[in-house]
């Protein structure tokens, strides 16, 4: 099976408002894909459907050839937007939890990454800064040996130096047969690690191409193109 995600005519409506409108998409394995679009363009909705947190109103989606559900969750590592961990737990306990939940979780890797970032595993989640929380969550997600990583705004709340570390962590820790999809609007920071980009606007794909093809044909960065396409 070549494609990790395949969807056709994928549509999601919320009380009359169309969040995703008839999306056709095939995403191969071994790619790092940027899901880019302004606020409210449907990025998070798409990611949530891939995780079976939302069900499509119309159309089909297959992850590794299967409908999103219990089976696909075993191969998908998902970083939601914002905090989703229990505040009262310390990092060690959370790592234990992940280890129980996911067969492909590598505690050793998680502890190594924590050490690299000088995060004490005995610290409680609620006592951490916003940036540190984001780092811990990313460490947990990247310590799984998944086939698909879905990262919703992984670099939104951290400073530029930590951003570089996070991107390094992503590059270092994914296996080359896996695909990473990350949504963001901080394009210039992540452009050089992406293979492909997908531009979403009002729930529709308005462009999907490789980063180097865009630079070659348009003579400008994806960031400048984005600013042009989505000019307010």
């Amino acid at each position: 099976m070549t494609y990790i995600i395949e969807c056709s005519n994928l549509t999601k409506k919320f009380k009359g408002k169309t969040a995703l409108n008839s999306i056709d998409l095939k995403i191969p394995r071994g790619r790092i894909v940027g899901l880019l679009g302004p606020n409210g363009s449907g990025k998070t909705t798409f990611i949530k459907i891939c995780n079976s947190l939302l069900t499509p109103t119309k159309g089909e989606i297959f992850i590794d050839g299967k409908e999103p559900g219990k089976e696909t969750k075993a191969i998908v590592s998902y970083l939601p937007e914002g905090n989703y961990l229990n505040d009262w737990m310390n990092v060690r306990a959370i790592i234990g939890l992940f280890n129980d939940f996911y067969k492909d979780f590598d505690s050793k890797k998680a502890y190594q990454l924590l050490k690299d970032l000088n995060i004490n595993p005995n610290d409680k989640f609620k006592n951490m800064s916003k940036g540190t929380k984001e780092k811990v969550q990313l460490i947990l997600v990247m310590s799984r040996d998944a086939q698909l990583y879905l990262l919703d705004e992984p670099i939104g709340g951290v400073d530029p130096a930590a951003r570089d570390y996070i991107l390094d962590t992503i590059l270092k820790n994914y296996n080359e047969k896996a695909t990473i999809i990350l949504s963001t609007h901080l394009i210039s920071d992540i452009e050089r690690i992406l293979d492909d980009i997908i531009f979403l606007k009002n729930g529709e794909i308005i462009m999907s191409n490789t980063v180097d093809d865009i630079r070659e044909k348009q003579g400008k960065s994806v960031d400048s193109l984005f600013r042009e396409v989505f000019k307010c």
Binding site: R31, I32, L171, R192, D212
Partner: peptide, 16 residues
């Protein structure tokens, strides 16, 4: 992989 990381770029791009 090491070169890609050193340059902070995608490994596929470095491969190319």
């Amino acid at each position: 992989r090491d070169l890609a990381q050193e340059a902070s770029v995608n490994p596929n791009t470095m491969q190319r």
